[in-house]
Amino acid sequence: MADPYATLGVARGASEADIKKAYRKLAKELHPDRNRDNPKAAERFSQVTQAYDLLTDKDKRARFDRGEIDADGNPTSPFGFGGGAGGPGGGGFRSGGSQFDFGGGGDSGDLGDIFEGLFGFGGGRGQSSGGGFRSGYGNSGFGKRQQPKGANTAYRLSVPFEDAAALRPQRITLSDGKTIDLKLPAGVEDGTQMRLTGKGQPGPGGNGDGIVTIEIQPHKFYTRDGDNIRLDLPVTLKEAVLGGKVRVPTVDGAVMLTIPAGSSSGKILRLKERGFHKKGGGRGDQLVTLMLEIPANDAGLKQFVENWTGDIRNPRTGLGV
């Protein structure tokens, strides 16, 4: 994969918020559902997701910036090949066009001891019967490096609002046609990413991973407010004036809610622990806003109000009018 910063179009010093913003923009443009006739877009989408995955992992990003791993997350070299310390004035040496860095610039120690550790000088399996150095990878162990894994595969999973709040398992179909049930994490939100180890593309060092990005579907009457869920609940004039118990929907099923007598439209009632599951444990609440509904053409109600003299106050005095 190319440089992850270039892939996302951000500077090396970009903040996590800038990286997330760039990823969301590109993911929206390149999503396979919007580019069914463009296979290159799907490939680019996978690259963008892999770049995002690396740069939002603080440890991997730091190691990449130091040149310890490449854009695929694989070690650049078991001995620091390609570094600058073995150049002029450095503590390394060159052989066959590659640079071996032993941390020059300070006390380099005894290079003979280092070579002995690497190549087996001075006895053991790296020495022939005549005491000389025996070449070849099999005896010295030199040249061995970790094989790269396959590329990660990007998935997007659309989750119903109620399922996300209640953490109901979601079934996802992988690129190989197999399906698995995915357990959503507490604190899940739109854009949350989950890693499926070994569910990516095959490679010499094993399979890459599957990276699942969660998209929470909007709901027709619930809205999310942090870990809380908000609901506008229509009530009749009689229910607001006299109070009583009414059935209220929640993501876990309907419950009974007590409306206090004399409730005004806009009053907020709380159903505890009926919201989203929190990362640190527990759940948010469901906040129910009462919305008074008055019938449009009720002659009896109209006559009652016209003849009613019980309420002569001005409820707008607090607004200065």
Results as ranks from 00 to 15, higher is better:
74 N>Y: 01
247 R>A: 15
208 G>C: 07
155 Y>G: 07
61 R>Q: 10
309 T>Y: 06
82 G>Q: 08
247 R>Y: 02
312 I>M: 07
317 T>W: 01
101 D>N: 13
77 S>E: 04
166 A>I: 09
296 A>W: 03
171 R>Q: 14
145 R>A: 12
149 K>M: 12
234 P>F: 11
271 L>Y: 02
154 A>R: 02
299 A>E: 10
139 N>L: 13
321 V>T: 08
152 N>P: 04
11 A>H: 05
103 G>M: 02
84 G>H: 01
95 S>E: 10
152 N>K: 03
290 L>N: 04
7 T>R: 00
65 D>A: 11
12 R>L: 11
124 G>S: 08
306 E>V: 00
24 R>I: 15
50 Q>V: 06
249 P>W: 02
112 G>W: 04
15 S>D: 07
7 T>C: 06
149 K>Y: 06
140 S>I: 04
253 G>A: 08
237 L>R: 02
176 D>I: 01
54 L>H: 06
135 S>C: 04
157 L>A: 14
255 V>C: 01
158 S>C: 02
288 V>I: 13
272 K>N: 14
117 G>Q: 15
18 D>Y: 02
61 R>W: 04
197 T>I: 14
194 M>V: 15
90 G>R: 00
157 L>M: 14
25 K>G: 14
276 F>M: 08
15 S>G: 13
28 K>I: 02
95 S>N: 10
241 V>P: 00
303 Q>A: 15
30 L>C: 13
224 R>T: 03
64 F>Q: 07
313 R>E: 09
49 T>P: 03
73 G>L: 00
138 G>V: 04
213 T>W: 10
272 K>I: 09
136 G>V: 03
202 P>M: 05
117 G>C: 07
117 G>N: 05
35 N>S: 11
6 A>E: 15
29 E>W: 08
272 K>R: 15
58 K>H: 04
186 A>R: 15
274 R>E: 12
222 Y>T: 08
205 G>I: 02
236 T>W: 05
206 G>A: 02
136 G>Q: 08
267 K>L: 14
196 L>Q: 10
72 D>M: 06
264 S>D: 13
178 K>T: 05
252 D>H: 03
130 G>S: 12
287 L>G: 09
63 R>L: 09
248 V>L: 00
7 T>G: 01
87 G>Q: 14
190 D>G: 12
148 P>K: 13
189 E>H: 15
293 E>G: 02
45 F>E: 03
144 K>W: 10
239 E>Q: 15
282 G>S: 13
99 Q>N: 14
102 F>R: 05
200 G>M: 02
49 T>M: 15
306 E>P: 00
259 I>M: 09
314 N>S: 09
102 F>H: 07
216 I>S: 08
110 D>E: 10
225 D>I: 00
238 K>V: 12
70 D>R: 01
274 R>N: 12
4 P>K: 01
160 P>A: 11
277 H>V: 05
270 R>P: 04
129 S>G: 12
